[in-house]
Design a binder for these strands. Structure first.
Length: 239
DNA sequence: CCAGACGTTGTT
DNA sequence: GTCTGG
DNA sequence: CCAGACGTTGTT
DNA sequence: GTCTGG
């Protein structure tokens, strides 16, 4: 699962270069690093709009609205059959701009957050879906996105039974540009082949300050490394 | 995702 | 326990 | 408690 | 994730 993430990259130029995506003036003017992105927050996503030659970075709001609250994640295995998400599989694939995600372990009240990120803290994308909702009264359009999940790799497995789908630049390009000739099961299988757990060495995990547990905090101290608790989940999983 | 509040009776 | 706010 | 569904368009 | 049905 993925219920909190980050984009700590200091400047927008580095983000744009890493993703090889166009960006708008608003991205350049309003970008700022995030240390604690929470559900229903506004955040940057990469979309390849119909007719557009290249992917572009724009804003969306995290979570597809539903009667059961915002749907912040969608299972990649079933996204194509779920009524909430299936249309977006064909028309609303995106990348969610990030450089890490958080998972918590331990008893309630003493939850220890772990930050999963690249060894060099480079930005990347989660595979995501987006949808433009139109308010029938005001006519205003709000773009919503959700983060796709898959089974955990060995690094994440001790913490959770799901992890976000992570795409490298090749995977991201394939995900955004995928254009099947027909909506067949084979086409879906081809797409799902892009949505496997990321290689184990791709990420490292760091136990970080419990400051990040409070969504009102959004500063570098949120990700300050702390001594790992005893026993860390990695050791618990040996049994 | 986590943290924190959550309602009503009826007055130390 | 569930719901809300962030 | 667990298991299973979870929505919308618009008509064979 | 939450909600409903059994």
């Amino acid at each position: 699962m993925c219920g909190r993430f980050t984009l700590t990259t200091a400047d927008y130029v580095s983000v744009g270069q890493a993703l090889d995506a166009d960006f708008t003036r608003s991205f350049a003017e309003t970008y700022q690093p995030r240390f604690n992105v929470a559900p229903s927050d506004s955040h940057w996503i990469v979309c390849l709009e119909p007719e557009a030659p290249r992917p572009a970075i724009g804003l969306g709001t995290w979570g597809f609205p539903s009667s059961r609250g915002p749907m912040i994640n969608a299972r990649s295995e079933t996204m194509h059959v779920r009524p909430t998400f299936r249309d977006a599989v064909w028309s609303g694939r995106c990348g969610v701009v990030t450089d890490g995600f958080l998972e918590w372990s331990g008893p309630k009240g003493a939850r220890q957050p772990y930050w999963f990120h690249r060894p060099d803290d480079a930005p990347f994308v989660f595979a995501g879906l987006y949808r433009d909702d139109v308010n029938p009264d005001s006519g205003e359009v709000s773009r919503r996105f959700t983060v796709l999940t898959t089974r955990p790799n060995p690094l994440v497995a001790p913490h959770h039974d799901r992890m976000p789908v992570i795409l490298d630049s090749r995977g991201s390009d394939a995900w955004l540009r995928w254009s099947p000739t027909a909506r067949t099961p084979e086409a879906v299988n081809e797409l799902r082949g892009l949505l496997e757990p990321v290689a184990d060495q791709w990420l490292v995990s760091t136990p970080v300050s419990r400051r990040v547990s409070d969504v009102r905090n959004d500063d570098p101290e949120c990700l300050e490394p702390v001594d790992p608790p005893t026993p860390p989940p990695e050791q618990q999983s040996l049994f």
